[in-house]
Design a protein around this nucleic acid. Structure first.
Length: 282
DNA sequence: CCTTGTGTTCTCCG
DNA sequence: CCGGAGAACACAAG
């Protein structure tokens, strides 16, 4: 379940690895996972990598891009024949047996290094888009959670006419980019706010606290290389993140609240499971 | 049956 | 009747 910290972790490594590589071959094992003309991107050089919300953008020559959304079970795995032997990042053993039954797309570069797109549940996708199309796509998104312009005033403006639960609100792309079920639950716990509370009922003090905590937990998630739950998220080398060791509520239903030791509650909010402390979150 | 990110579609209400 | 809000459903596989 890659959210902003997981996608950012992947983006930062792609940034070290991909620029100046040239796409040599694209193999699509599952049609649904790739949209666009492969011929358009062959022999194109990679210029830079960027991220918006949970999207990874690979900038190519000629104003072309690969836009990648991992959704819930998508993984990008990088394999370099040269690095395999010695230095660089530690690599999970299973990476050497790719492609796997879940490999949907394989991109090979002219230096024989390879990028695998694995996606068990086939919700994720890679699309070939022009710069213009990318801008159109981005227009649907609110600010990123780690954007300096994301403030309590901004959030109040976005939720003032919204009575949906605050947790659902901060997970909506139009309001805020990059926050999913894990970091939403964690931020609300740290802010001491009941996730079921109508978004437009929060005071400015609560909104400020929430904004602060969202940024805090997102930045901590990045620092820990993301959260790996059920093995769904791994980095470019197939390695897990470490933030799962620092979770207060997500995945801890019926366990004790670290703050008050009471049993954590589990409710459905907008169809998603939500763990929180009835005693500490009001 | 459950899990989730997001797009679509439908319904309600002012 | 339009538009926004929100609910419901769809997707997919383990």
């Amino acid at each position: 379940m890659p959210e902003l910290p997981e996608v950012e972790t992947i983006k930062r490594r792609l940034e070290e690895i991909l620029p100046s590589k040239v796409i040599n071959q694209v193999t699509v094992f599952r049609e649904k996972s790739f949209a666009g003309e492969i011929n358009q991107i062959l022999d194109k050089k990679i210029i830079q990598i960027s991220r918006r919300a949970k999207l990874i953008r690979v900038h190519l020559e000629d104003r072309l891009n690969l836009l990648i959304h991992l959704k819930m079970t998508g993984q990008l795995i990088y394999q370099d024949e040269l690095v395999k032997i010695g230095g660089g990042h530690p690599t999970a053993d299973w990476v050497n047996s790719l492609p796997s039954p879940h490999t949907r797309v394989l991109i090979t570069f002219t230096d024989d290094s390879r990028l695998f797109f694995n996606d068990m549940r086939v919700f994720g996708w890679i699309r070939v888009l022009s710069d213009l199309s990318i801008e159109r796509e981005y227009a649907n998104y609110g600010l990123d959670a780690n954007d300096n312009k994301f403030t309590a005033d901004y959030l109040r403006d976005k939720v003032k006419s919204r009575s949906i639960p605050i947790k659902q609100a901060i997970m909506l792309n139009k309001i805020l980019g990059g926050v999913g079920n894990i970091y939403a639950a964690e931020a609300l716990f740290l802010a001491g706010i009941d996730p079921r509370k109508p978004a437009n009922s929060l005071s400015m003090v609560e909104l400020q606290q929430l904004v602060t905590r969202i940024k805090e937990v997102i930045n901590l998630g990045i620092k820990h290389g993301g959260t790996t739950f059920d093995g769904k998220y791994v980095d470019l080398s197939g390695m897990s993140g470490r933030h799962q060791e620092y979770l207060y509520v997500y995945g801890r239903a019926d366990e004790k609240c670290v703050n008050c030791a009471k049993s954590l509650s589990n409710v459905k909010i907008a169809g998603r499971s939500t763990v929180f402390c009835r005693s500490c979150q009001k």
